[in-house]
């Protein structure tokens, strides 16, 4: 069990500040996901928590104890690297047992722990192989196994799935979710820039932007109540539609955002009219791209297979109460109904 407290954490590389004052509490046993665009400092923040980088200022505490100057191995953490970071000259078994053996742990117990982890990750047949004799997915499982064997109180993942193909990514994602359930005492912090991973795995998501926390909340909170255009655009797929100027004015906002599923086709009384420029059929759903004269085409979801062909004129209306309003700085000013009917 470990509860993490970050208080105004800052990190500079030379004169360049990468983490610009991050504060948050991570509850014991929670699955926290850091998301954000590339270069926003997710990995750096994770490495600060791991102790692989030194914190420039601010305090990091585990269960109320400040750990700023504690070496990684004393923090009770385990980390899974994006590149796996397996020891190339050691077998799978040795990779998992190495740290424990050198810590002078009892041989028998060590073997048991490794075997249990291997069993859980279906690695038993590969224990005698070298990393280069394994597939990418198997290597990633070894890296996870090595972390499990450490029996950490905080489990750190840095984009563990980004080197895997789509199918394997889904499978491993489910495995990680299962792992979290079976290690319910372990706090997990997971870095990704894939918002689907974030939505499916997280208890809470922390959206980072340019070294600062943009918003922290449960996946649904972020989805339904994004507090900025940045979060609104980042969470959810397809991306939220943003409209400004004449489209936003009737709603008393600088910008409004509407998700694709909150736009309905309404050929009689639609609020906006546009031409279909493109349509994507996914089988269960279709996404129609509609040019209504805004900066970008509006994406509209339609259940099943759409019958609207490119070039057709379609009228649409937003679902009542599902319009996100933002001010000029992109901050949320709540959702609302329209002031007056169009």
């Amino acid at each position: 069990m470990a509860e993490l407290q970050l208080r105004d954490i800052r990190k500079s590389f030379g004169a360049y500040e990468v983490i610009k004052g991050v504060s948050m509490d991570i509850k014991a046993g929670e699955f926290m996901v850091f998301v954000g665009p590339s270069g926003c400092g997710k990995s750096t923040l994770l490495r600060l928590i791991a102790g692989l980088e030194e914190i420039t200022s601010g305090t990091l505490s585990f269960d109320g104890r400040v750990v700023n100057h504690l070496v990684p191995s004393k923090r009770g953490i385990a980390m899974v690297f994006q590149s796996y970071a397996l020891y190339p000259h050691m077998t799978v078994f040795e990779n998992m047992a190495f740290g424990m053996q050198l810590a002078g742990k009892d041989k028998q117990r060590c073997r048991k722990r490794v075997e249990a982890a291997a069993e859980m990750l279906q690695l038993t047949p590969y224990l005698k192989r070298l990393p280069r004799q394994l597939s990418g997915g198997q290597r990633q499982r070894v890296a996870i196994g090595r972390a499990i064997v450490r029996d950490p109180t905080v489990f750190l993942f840095d984009e563990p799935l980004s080197n895997l193909d789509a199918a394997l990514r889904v499978a491993t994602r489910i495995e990680i979710a299962r792992l979290h359930r079976s290690m319910h005492n372990t706090t997990m912090i997971y870095v990704t820039h894939d918002q689907v991973e974030a939505m499916t795995l997280a208890d809470r998501i922390c959206v980072l932007r340019d070294g600062r926390v943009e918003q922290i909340g449960t996946p649904l909170e972020l989805y339904e109540h994004p507090n900025s255009t940045f979060v609104a655009g980042f969470i959810g797929s397809p991306k939220m539609n943003f409209l400004s100027e004449t489209f936003a004015m009737p709603f008393d906002a600088d910008t409004i955002g509407i998700r694709a599923e909150h736009l309905v086709i309404d050929q009689e009384g639609g609020l906006w009219v546009g031409n279909v420029v493109h349509s994507e059929m996914l089988g269960s759903d279709s996404y129609i791209h509609l040019d209504i004269g805004a900066a970008e085409p509006l994406i509209v979801r339609e259940g099943g297979t759409s019958s609207h062909k490119p070039g057709e004129t379609v009228r649409i209306s937003p679902v009542a109460g599902q319009i996100h309003r933002f001010d000029a700085a992109g901050r949320s000013i709540g959702r609302t109904e329209m002031r007056g009917a169009a």
Binding site: P72, S73, A78, M79, A85, Y87, G99, R150
Partner: peptide, 25 residues
């Protein structure tokens, strides 16, 4: 690869051991 040294740090392996068990092999 540099990342295995970070893995060793997390595993808490003494630098001398790191030399003999990782670097040298």
């Amino acid at each position: 690869p540099g990342d295995i040294y970070e893995a060793a740090k997390i595993d808490g392996i003494h630098p001398v051991k790191v030399f003999w068990r990782l670097t040298l092999p």
